[in-house]
Every structure is written in C-alpha cells, then in structure tokens.
Amino acid sequence: MKKRHLYTMALAVASLLATTITSVSSAHAASGTLQDILSRGKLIVGTGSGNPPFHFLDASGKLVGMDIDIAKSIAKGLFGDENKIEFVQQASDARIPNLVTDKIDITCQFMTVTALRAQQVAFTTPYYREGVGLLLKKGGKYKDYAALLKAGSKAKISILQNVTAADYVHAALPKATVLQFAETALIYAAVDAGRADAAASDQSAIAWLVAQSPKKYADSGYGWMPQSYSCAVKQGDQVWLNFVNQVLNEDMSGVDFDAYAASFKKWFGVTLQPPHIGFPR
C-alpha cells in the first residue's frame, strides 16, 4: 500500500516538474510582440461589442465602431490588410487582466487614460477626447442638470462599473446616489426602467443616443471630466508600443488622415479639418 502511494506522489511531482520546465522554456522562446504578431499573421485585439459608437455589432452582426476602425488601422500598418485581425470579446473590467496575461496584443476599447492604470499597462497616443454627460428620460422626474443637483441624494445616477465611477458622478453631483452596472446597455436600461434618474455616460454616447431616439431621451446639458481615450498594450515592450503610436500619429496627422477623418465623421458626425502643412505640430 505504502509503495503505491509513494509511486503516485512521485508521478505527481514528476509531471509538475515537466509542466514547469516546458512552460518556462516556451515563455522565453519568444522575442518581441511585434515579431510575434508578424510571424503569427494576425493581430489579436481585445474589445467590447455593446457600446455604440465605439464598438458594437451592426444589423448584419459585424463588429463596427471607432475602436474597431482604430484596430483595423493598426492591422493595416502591420500586414497591409486591415482584416488580418482577431477580435477577442471582453468586458470593460477584463481590459487590463487580458493584457497582463498575454491573451491579447492590444486593447482598443474606449479606455480612459489614468495615471493609476498607466502603472499596470502602457497607454498609446490618445485617439479621442471624451467628456462625461448625463442622459435623462424625456419627460422624466428631472428636467436638467440643475434639477438633479437640487435633488441631492434623491437623484439616482447609473454608471458603468469602474474603480473611479463614484468619484466621476460626485464631481458633478456631490450628493447623488451612484448605481454601478457591469454593462453600458444596463445603465440606460436603468433609466428606461426608472431605477435611475439619469445615466452618467460618455458625451459621445449620449449624443448618439439622443440622435437615435429624440423622443425617448434628453441630454442634461452639462458635461464634465475631460478624458483621453487610448489603446493600451502590455508594459515592457517599447518596440511594439512605438509601432502602435506611430500608426496612430499617422492616422491623426499623417498619411492615413483621410481614413481616420472618415471614421470620425461616421461615428461622431464631426468633420475634421485636415492637418496644416509645414511645421509638424
């Protein structure tokens, strides 16, 4: 009996060692994300699928939006083909874990740049500037921002779950009750269902929603908290980060400006002025 136990234990220890050795050797075989992606033949991008106009599925079930166009411009820079790309669906709170654990090469998912996050991942050049606004139900209890402010803690504000979500809301409505939800659709659903009086969301999203259903929603007319949206990569690979930054810079002010401006017009309804010629700033 004892002998058999010893045998089992030895076997377990041996297999554990074997896995450790193979995993360690495979972990150090690779050299550089950029090379990895090029030899793999496709870019793996983490993004969401339920937040227009940044990333959502159109009527034909295709993933579209500003984040998707940005990701495609990176794939185009890598392979000359914007379709050599694999999108990994992720919830907003999986953005950093998926990068840190090497599930994806890059995340492009309307990610707000903060110093706290920059300690965990490396942000690229921002590709959009956003602000927070408040979406109200048309004909609801509160008409505008002033009414919400006056209501104090009675005003219930829904917002996408986030470490800093409560601070975001309290910066505009210091006493408001904050309701956090895991999906963007749910913060609007809370307004629809009357569980929340207003949804704190991106001004771009609010503009999109009010434009889509002017009879259902209204804008509170107040915006605050300017923030930059960037893609993010894993820390420690400057070559890859530089490559992405260069692609984004050329998107916004160089040879790929026309494509970027077309996306901007399509998703935000804003026509960009072409960058001036001459001194490059």
Partner: peptide, 8 residues
C-alpha cells in the same frame, strides 16, 4: 447584450 447595444 450585443443586440441591445445596437438597438437598446
């Protein structure tokens, strides 16, 4: 969630 993301 994806469908709702499109049509709310």
């Amino acid at each position: 969630q994806q469908i709702i993301g499109r049509n709310f």
